[in-house]
Write a protein that binds this DNA or RNA. Structure first.
Lengths: 161, 161
DNA sequence: CTCCTTGCAAAGCCTTTGCATTTAC
DNA sequence: GTAAATGCAAAGGCTTTGCAAGGAG
């Protein structure tokens, strides 16, 4: 698993460098840092989380650069934008997680990660049918936890904060 | 078609009134106006579009109420929130459009509406498997137009604006 | 050496909030 | 009559932008 993750990160970095060369853009250390932060994370992050994590590691990056880089990575399909209903964007790696989706509870806000082995193929087919080349996609599902008790407990915790 | 749309709107309104009664909330004319605006629209709208359309019709509604109502309708699963990458939320009716998704071109920004007859069933199954009751969902696909010429033309138009 | 990129701070924009007023039930 | 909803304006929070300084190719 550890090994797999590193491979993904390495693959992303190789792709990134090649993209940058093609587009005549520069591979700065800040950009690589953001890429690694996202690929090293187990799930979705928002811009501020990425900024703070990098600062804590001693990387002297600015928010402006984080936003610029995220936009770049999105355009290159190395990260996806997802909207979990928090009114700000989250970001997630695309490589190696094409069967990935989120289910958000509308009551307690809990976000569950789910996988589907049909999803990627279906989206790919839909793109073809509609005259598009697939870049990335994100599926958000809003619903309610079936476990009402645990859900209510979490909702209470949220209130408290 | 016209008939079908009206039926959906009527169905949404009935559901809404019953929800409101159950929750002890009030059916104000502003809330009904927002609901009708969304159900009367052919596609996704953002909060400001809803506000402006209602104002043009002479409805004296405020932005605050539009936002409050959208939140309410979302919680009741009468509208879905979608993120088309514009960094602000769009809203769309849920009733009668469960097979609906968006494909956004990352180059020119064009949004295509697509349908899939497998999608709703798949999402429903995923919810069950993961211990959730389905409320609503939204799938956004980011990619590139295959028609490069038309795409480049649209991109140029966007620049001009 | 050139042009891209960074970082700071300010501006921008969407969304939420506090509070007095109005209104549905 | 009373609790809920509206509207206004101000505040809030995420994101973008302008511009000077720095750095990759």
């Amino acid at each position: 698993m550890q090994h797999e993750r590193n491979e993904q990160t390495a693959q992303a970095e190789t792709l990134f460098r090649s993209f940058m060369k093609t587009e005549g853009l520069r591979c700065t250390s800040e950009r690589i840092d953001v890429l690694q932060e996202i690929y090293g994370a187990d799930s979705h992050l928002d811009a501020d989380e990425i900024y703070n994590r990098l600062r804590k590691k001693g990387t002297g990056i600015s928010r402006a650069t984080v936003y610029h880089t995220l936009d770049l990575l999105f355009r290159l399909n190395l990260v996806t934008r997802i909207d979990l209903g928090h009114h700000h964007t989250h970001y997630e790696k695309t490589l190696g997680v094409a069967n990935h989706l989120h289910i958000v509870c509308q009551k307690c806000g809990k976000v569950s990660e789910a996988t589907s082995n049909q999803l990627a193929g279906m989206v790919e087919a839909l793109c073809s049918e509609n005259g598009f080349t697939l870049g990335s996609f994100s599926l958000q599902v809003f619903g309610e936890c079936r476990d009402k008790e645990a859900c209510a407990e979490r909702a209470r915790q949220n209130e408290a904060e």
